[in-house]
């Protein structure tokens, strides 16, 4: 529908502008050329899909097809349903609990690597050891919890052998517990890396100064290291919170389809071919995530931290 519009060159308005100092236009032009592939990909596969979702969220669906329309039916249904509120609450709950665990584990690991390992080779080796799982399949990593947590899994057998329990625990697999465990397992990395990165850039003399002035190890941690590590913590937080809030597959797999979050709400609608309803939920999810990020970004300037 808008094909004729997109044919207009993007730089057309530039020609009308008053001439700029010569260096600036040349620099801009080269910059635009070099950034063009990235821009095109993001326009086609990020911006356009979001626009499409927003449009479709106002459409209606029959059993077999979706019909262009401008109706608020999907949103009315969404906000009018008890399920929506419960599922959003569950999503926040997963995000919050996962955040607390990944932050405390990730911070401790990064702290150990940055301040207790003295040789740089060792530091790199151990850091890689922590990051390698990131490059392997999430699905496989989820599957690999089954022999641990199942009814006759390693955890239950061990606890029974030790005489701690008589009956196998049922809540180990297919429960909130296993969902959060998998989240922590998959995403702690996203905390370790940025926190480690900021810690490595802390000037060691600041820490020495703190000790020289009589601060205890704990006081140094609290008043020197943590404040200086805040940007890394924020970046890790953004990663973990958005990954957990947008997830649908971990919750489905690790809860055996017994628990729900917003992502699953969307994917269920998709499975039923209710695209407009899925799109409306997706729009609300997107707004929620953006608000959360907006709040978090007030604390950090990402571009400076790389």
């Amino acid at each position: 529908m808008s094909e004729t519009l997109t044919d207009t060159p993007a730089s057309a308005p530039q020609a009308a502008r008053p001439p700029k100092p010569p260096g600036s236009l040349g620099r801009n032009l080269l910059g635009w050329l070099q950034a063009a592939p990235l821009t095109l990909v993001l326009l086609a596969f990020l911006v356009a899909p979001i626009v499409m979702i927003v449009i479709v969220s106002f459409w209606r669906a029959t059993e077999f097809s979706i019909i262009p329309d401008f109706s608020f039916e999907n949103y009315e249904f969404l906000f009018g349903s008890q399920v929506t509120w419960r599922v959003f609450m569950a999503t926040f709950k997963y995000a919050l609990i996962t955040w607390a665990f990944t932050l405390s584990i990730g911070f401790t690991v990064a702290y150990f690597l940055a301040f207790h390992i003295r040789s740089q080779t060792m530091q790199i080796a151990l850091f890689l050891l922590c990051t390698i799982p990131f490059w392997t399949s999430n699905i496989i990593r989820m599957i690999s919890w089954i022999p641990f947590l199942g009814r006759n899994g390693i955890a239950n057998q061990t606890l029974q052998n030790w005489g701690l329990i008589d009956q196998p625990l049922e809540w180990l697999l297919y429960s909130d517990f296993s969902v959060i465990l998998a989240f922590v397992h998959l995403y702690t990395l996203f905390m370790v890396v940025p926190i480690f990165n900021t810690m490595m850039r802390i000037d060691k003399s600041l820490i020495e100064a703190a000790y020289d002035n009589g601060a205890s190890g704990f006081q140094t941690l609290l008043h020197v290291i943590i404040p200086l590590t805040k940007p890394g913590i924020m970046i890790g937080t953004i990663f973990v919170v958005t990954l957990v809030m947008g997830d649908f597959i971990t919750v489905r797999f690790m809860s055996g389809s017994q628990k729900a979050n917003v992502g699953r709400l969307i994917s269920n609608d998709i499975a039923l071919l209710q695209y407009p309803s899925a799109a409306a939920t997706a729009v609300v999810l997107l707004c929620t995530v953006l608000i959360v990020i907006g709040i978090l970004l007030r604390f950090v300037n990402i571009r400076k931290e790389l």
Partner: peptide, 20 residues
């Protein structure tokens, strides 16, 4: 935009591209 691409829930990309 690039940062948004990183933090946007993946299912939105999937759904949106599929719809388009």
């Amino acid at each position: 935009l690039a940062i948004a691409s990183l933090v946007i829930p993946s299912i939105l990309i999937s759904l949106g591209v599929g719809l388009i």
